[in-house]
């Protein structure tokens, strides 16, 4: 196969050529893309992100939604909100894109081994979390009890709902799902994600919590998690910011003095607790 993207000159801003091998519609707004790099594996950690190029439209930071333990390429779950994400949504299998990265710091899986894990995923937050959930499911015996809380505004907006049953079938794993507003045919729980907390048991000594969701969710979900007694250094979040380079140059992603593209997007709560601009 010929290499479609030239690479004679070293450039910080040139991506690796990649092919979209499959596209699946998840909801009205989100699609899941299978991506394969022409020159080898991505080599990411759960929680890292890539910069995705659709030439003619630009580049956008997108979390890797699949676990590094999954075979083949990797997956991106993309919400259509604008120029680049809209262009991605129009791509058909076989389309060529470019990928820079993986960038940033992912979830510290080594620190989580043998611990109980509480996942809290609001909306699109399940996309980055799915890379870690997949990792934990594939190495199930290396982790303790797993609790997964998933919330979305409406049933139609729930991401990856065909996977919840499979997760729940794993040993020692429970999955709780809620929607803010029910729709016809919905028989599950109704209420914001924090209304799931009374239903779960958390041992604060053995639990690591991982919370990812929209900006408004963090304050409430964190309060519930701390109310369960989980210490600040055992709570991880993944934060979104505007990002234009992914490599610590463009300045867009800063939280106070911290470059989210370098030190994040994953942070222990204890690392950002004192920063006014964090949450």
């Amino acid at each position: 196969m010929s290499t479609p993207l030239t690479r004679q000159i070293e450039s910080l801003y040139l991506g690796r050529p990649a092919t979209v091998t499959a596209v699946r519609t998840l909801t009205d707004k989100e699609k899941l893309f299978d991506v394969e790099l022409a020159d080898g594996p991505l080599g990411h950690e759960p929680g890292q992100f890539v910069e995705v190029s659709v030439f003619g439209y630009g580049e956008a930071p997108i979390s890797v939604a699949s676990s590094p333990t999954a075979p083949g390429g990797f997956q991106l779950c993309v919400r259509n909100v604008g120029r680049v994400t809209g262009a991605l949504h129009r791509l058909e299998p076989g389309a060529m894109i470019a990928i820079r990265g993986p960038f940033g710091r992912g979830f510290p899986v080594d620190r989580m081994r043998n611990r109980d894990i509480l996942f809290v995923a609001g909306g699109l937050g399940l996309a980055p979390l799915r890379s870690l959930i997949g990792y934990v499911m594939d190495r199930r015996s290396e982790f303790g009890h797993v609790t997964i809380l998933v919330g979305a505004r409406t049933p139609g907006e729930l991401l990856f709902n065909d996977e919840y049953a499979g997760w729940a079938r794993s040993p020692d794993t429970e999955v709780h799902v809620t929607v803010d507003r029910a729709a016809e045919g919905w028989t599950g729980h109704v209420g914001v994600i924090t209304t799931l907390f009374p239903r779960i048991q958390v041992d604060p000594k053995t639990t690591t919590a991982v919370i990812v969701g929209p900006p408004v969710m963090y304050r409430f979900a964190l309060a519930e998690t701390f109310a369960k007694g989980v210490p600040e250094d055992q709570v991880y979040v993944s934060l979104e910011r505007r990002m234009k380079c992914g490599v610590g140059k463009c300045g867009h992603c800063q939280i106070n003095g911290i470059y989210v593209c370098q030190k994040g997007p994953v942070f222990a709560y204890a690392e950002i607790a004192g920063l006014e601009e964090a949450l």
């Binding site: 000159i9 070293e10 450039s11 030439f55 060529m96």
Partner: peptide, 11 residues
Amino acid sequence: LGAPPVVEPVL
């Protein structure tokens, strides 16, 4: 643009 796109870094 094209299938595949041809991309050149510029320095």
